Simulated scan of single mutants.
Amino acid sequence: MKILVLNSGSSSLKYQLFEMPNEQPLCSGLVDRIGLEGSTITHKNLKSGKEEKFLIETPIQDHEAGLLKVTELLKDTEKGSISDNSEIEAIGHRVVHGGEQFASTTLITEVVKAKIKELFALAPLHNPPNYLGITVAERIFPNAKQVAVFDTAFHQSMPPLAYRYAVPKEMYSQLGIRAYGFHGTSHQYVSKKALKYLQNPNAKIISIHLGNGCSMTAIDSGKSIDTSMGLGPMGGLIMGTRAGDIDPSIIFHLINERGYSSKEVNEILNKKSGLLGLSGFSDMRDVKKAIEEGNKDAKLAYQLYAYRIQKYIGSFTAVLKGLDAIVFTAGIGENDPDMRAEVCKGMDFFGIQLDLLLNSQKTQTIREVNQKGSPVKILVIPTNEELEIGQQTFEIVRK
């Protein structure tokens, strides 16, 4: 069965085509700058185990035009892997916010689409383009089963102690104000890999997803019991441009005393804070380069980023009442050994003991970077959200 995975953003469209159930990737790519000048498609094709990469520069007016271009590439005799649209039996869509309505992957119906629209207010930057990707895919692949995989679903196992806020209860019951958590697809994927590696289905794990967006999850026996992000994807850890946890009184001070509008404050906390606000750079590679050049702001940003992660390791270890492993994943978590060392520094009393030599080595597979005999395993596991979406889509449609 061929399954297409789509991750639709406001001006981008990530895609990957899998042959299931053997999980063989056939094609993947990114449609970038949709509706903007300089639109491009980066397309990768796997033939005979070799990856071929193509860069196509072409105007792409909207998501429908983008998906049509992707369909052309998938059917191209040189670049593609199918001969007709009908070969794709199912499409798995990443949907960021599923609220309390969706605790698992689900087949998309008109009722499901209506509920996704109702959740626009909880994820205004993400759910609208996710929804748009669904409607476009329905038109281009009318015979394929459409499946929604929600970022928030993995965290629906959290108990009320973890997801409730200390606000009037009608805000929860009537307005849905609670912690939902995000990056669930990534946390679920790497935690499954970790449990298998540890050969312990009841292991207590802290998953640390560090990319441009960052989050951590406390996982007990494969279930999320707490996570760093809340109602939206802005809380918790310091991120590329997001502030993470702050005192809410800062928001009211800026609005009531300093004359900022709520829109301006939202823009600052979402797009002008985090590493960017602290150092002037949103990309961790640029932050590290600036540190090498003696930039004190960049050094503070790097240390503060790690410090916040350490605080969550402490709190989540308390929530789990023990710890068997921590898992580093996503772009920074997988590829920045210095950040892993900064996070693990001085954490011996938690049983977290990093082996600097193992930590400095690079592989593309799951690896252990802790000292021999360390009470807590330190694992680096490459995430693959697209494969997780493909797996969950396959499980739904084959029933």
Score class of each variant (00 low, 15 high):
Lys2Gln: 07
Leu4Thr: 06
Leu6Ala: 02
Asn7Glu: 14
Ser12Cys: 12
Leu13Met: 13
Lys14Gly: 02
Lys14Ile: 07
Gln16Cys: 11
Gln24Tyr: 08
Leu26Ala: 10
Leu26Met: 10
Ser28Phe: 07
Gly29Cys: 06
Ile34Val: 11
Glu37Gln: 15
Gly38Leu: 07
Thr40Lys: 14
Thr40Pro: 13
Lys44Arg: 14
Phe54Ile: 05
Pro59Ala: 05
Asp62Gln: 12
Leu68Tyr: 08
Leu68Ser: 15
Glu78Cys: 06
Ile82Gly: 01
Glu89Gln: 14
Ala90Leu: 14
Val95Gly: 00
Gln101Arg: 10
Ala103Arg: 02
Ala103Glu: 12
Thr105Gln: 02
Thr106Ser: 10
Lys113Gly: 00
Lys115Asp: 11
Glu118Ile: 03
Ala123Phe: 02
Asn130Cys: 14
Leu132Asp: 12
Thr135His: 05
Glu138Ser: 12
Arg139Ile: 13
Ile140Ala: 03
Lys145Thr: 13
Val147Gly: 09
Ser157Tyr: 00
Ala166Asn: 11
Lys169Gly: 01
Glu170Met: 09
Leu175Asp: 14
Leu175Glu: 14
Leu175Gly: 07
Ala179Met: 05
Tyr180Val: 00
Gly181Asp: 01
Ser186Asn: 08
His187Asn: 09
Tyr189Gly: 09
Val190Thr: 06
Ser191Leu: 13
Lys193Gln: 15
Ala194Gly: 06
Lys196Ser: 11
Lys204Val: 02
Ile206Phe: 06
Ile208Phe: 04
Gly213Gln: 00
Cys214Ala: 12
Ser215Ile: 02
Gly222Tyr: 01
Gly222Trp: 02
Ile225Arg: 05
Thr227Val: 03
Thr227Pro: 01
Met229Arg: 04
Met229Pro: 01
Met234Glu: 14
Gly235Cys: 05
Gly240Ile: 09
Gly240Ser: 05
Gly244Ser: 04
Ile250Arg: 09
Leu254Met: 15
Arg258Gly: 10
Arg258Tyr: 10
Ser261Trp: 11
Ser262Leu: 14
Glu264Ser: 11
Val265Ser: 10
Asn266Leu: 11
Leu269Cys: 11
Asn270Phe: 07
Asn270Asp: 07
Lys272Leu: 14
Ser273Leu: 10
Gly274Ile: 01
Leu278Ala: 13
Phe281Asp: 06
Asp286Val: 06
Gly294Asp: 05
Tyr302Arg: 03
Gly314Glu: 01
Gly314His: 07
Gly314Cys: 02
Leu320Tyr: 12
Leu323Cys: 06
Val327His: 06
Gly331Ile: 09
Ile332Gly: 01
Asp336Tyr: 03
Pro337Tyr: 04
Asp338Cys: 00
Asp348Pro: 11
Gly351Val: 13
Leu354Ile: 13
Asp355Arg: 13
Leu356Gln: 05
Asn359Arg: 04
Ser360Thr: 02
Gln361Leu: 13
Glu368Trp: 00
Val369Leu: 08
Gln371Lys: 15
Gln371His: 08
Lys372Gln: 15
Ser374Tyr: 12
Pro375Asn: 09
Pro382Phe: 03
Asn384Ile: 04
Glu385Val: 07
